[in-house]
Amino acid sequence: MIDWTSWLDYGFMRYALIAVLIITPLFGLMGTMIVNKKMAYFSDALGHSALTGIAVGVVFGVQDTNLSMVVFAVIFALLLNKIGSMNTASTDTIISVFSSCSVAVGLAILSKGGNFSKYSSLLVGDILSITKAEIGYLAVIFVITILFWLFGYNALNAICIHKTLAKSEGIKVKVFENLFAVLVALIVMLSIKWVGILIINALLILPAASARNISVNMREYHLFSLVFAIFSGVLGLMVSYYTNVATGPMIVIIASVIYFATFLYGRNERNK
């Protein structure tokens, strides 16, 4: 007989659980807008830019590479936003170019002297190594996000539906778009060490995409996205403990299963 609470006997598991309880609702919320705005490419590129941010920090001898990572990501996000609004050739191509370029630069610098293994944990993430102080950072960004959501969500949604129409209603389109991009950058950077570059985007997109399969209005969309995100997070952490599999991938696997289930369910409902 397995003891279903034994995983909480360890301090690192309790920290991990708190981290999951902060990160997953954040991702669930942000995802609703990222999916509606079709910014999956954008957040993916941001995730990849973490490597470059760390590399830049290493080159300039910054003590805390977290700092260089966050600064670089914010600049990168604003740059991508600017490109996206320029109406030039297809945005996804340009974002892709910038993203690969920044990953290459990051990899080149970090792998110099054969030291890359030091950073490889960034790729998959390791939520079990999170410390109290780092949970504190997450809590701060959590509060900021909630406030931004309360005061800015309507405007973001209006901009997403029609920019010119939003502007004609007096909404500051550029300000909100940039704030949102910066917020995504901050959240991605502060959680990338625990979730991992390779799968962070899946966690951002999947809960909202699943919710979209079965929701008909904004209230359902948010509720389902939050529930799916938290559920996959907590269950993923538990299962990873008992199966000895990395936590991030486990969470994503559960979130994917939910996506396919809602996809089939939603399709059936619509065909009725």
Partner: peptide, 11 residues
């Protein structure tokens, strides 16, 4: 409501 109101539409 997104265009005309301040009260969040997800409430």
């Amino acid at each position: 409501a997104s265009y005309k109101g301040r009260y969040p539409v997800f409430f």
